[in-house]
């Protein structure tokens, strides 16, 4: 990104500037756009006298965030813990079931269409049932979030395991590798990209599940905070919590992406 200033007017210098601008543009442009949108929002809200109940200005929201930061962090902790627990459960159960499906043909034929069916129906509607079964506490939210994030993991992992290069598997067999070894050394590494794409969907679903759970049952957490602030028409509060939640969502997603990078590097692939 070094932008060395060349002698003015020399055509090569202009080209160099053009090239480095083009390289920086994909990074600069989104930031500029975001700043412009925030500025416009601020100006419009102030100039048009939009009541802050309807749309608080970005500066109001920043102020609210600053004041409520300890509270927001307090509320973010249960949400984050529930999400991580749900994700872990979904990941373990999902991969487990995907392995079973991969190695047993009758089970695959039996279960897979039903899994796809569940993938398509609006599972969110089951949230109140989890509250009936598990009460108003965190287990209901974790179970519900794990339930909705479980299906993408199974389906991507099963697709990944099934997509292993058959030639490599035959090679393993002819080298008398045990099923377990060829799974560990071939199938699993081959399926990693698919598994992680399932994990990424699952992580966003887990956050959504926990938030919906908090909407309908909770006494704590960011979802509860948002709903309560919304019903009191403290819109700046709602926005502040939304920002906190977005940061949490992106951080959790980033953690999965980072884990993917680490695991794939450990397996010696990009």
């Amino acid at each position: 990104m070094s932008l060395e200033l060349p002698a003015a007017g020399s055509p090569r210098g202009v080209l160099a500037i053009g090239r480095s601008v083009r390289r920086v543009r994909p990074i600069i442009l989104p930031i500029v756009t975001l700043t412009a949108v925030l500025l416009l929002w601020q100006l419009a809200a102030v100039r048009l006298h939009i009541p802050s109940v309807l749309l608080p200005t970005p500066s109001d929201i920043a102020q609210e965030m600053w004041h409520a930061l300890p509270l927001l962090v307090d509320q973010a902790v249960p949400t984050a813990l529930d999400t991580l627990l749900a994700f872990a459960a979904a990941a373990v159960l999902g991969i487990g079931l995907a392995i079973v499906i991969t190695y047993s043909r009758p089970l695959r034929d039996t279960l897979y269409p039903n899994l796809v069916f569940f993938q398509l129906v609006p599972k969110v509607a089951l949230a109140p049932l989890f509250v009936i079964w598990l009460g108003y506490g965190s287990p209901a939210r974790v179970a519900f979030a794990a339930f909705i994030s479980f299906f993408p993991v199974v389906i991507s992992a099963a697709l990944g395991f099934a997509g292993t290069d058959p030639a490599v598997l035959r090679l393993c067999r002819s080298l008398t590798a045990s099923e377990w070894r060829s799974f560990l050394l071939v199938r699993f590494p081959f399926a990693l990209p698919a598994i992680f794409s399932g994990f990424k969907v699952a992580m966003t679903m887990a956050v959504v599940g926990v938030i919906i759970g908090e909407f309908i049952s909770s006494q704590a957490g960011l979802g509860h905070y948002i709903l309560r602030a919304g019903s009191r028409l403290e819109t700046a509060d709602v926005f502040a919590a939304l920002v906190a939640l977005s940061v949490l969502g992106v951080a959790l997603y980033g953690a999965v992406a980072l884990a993917e990078l680490g695991v794939r590097r450990a397996y010696g692939r990009r």
Partner: peptide, 15 residues
Amino acid sequence: QLIPKIALAPLFIVW
């Protein structure tokens, strides 16, 4: 895509 947009639902009620 990454942020839990469902959390904005209460805002839409306000609006």
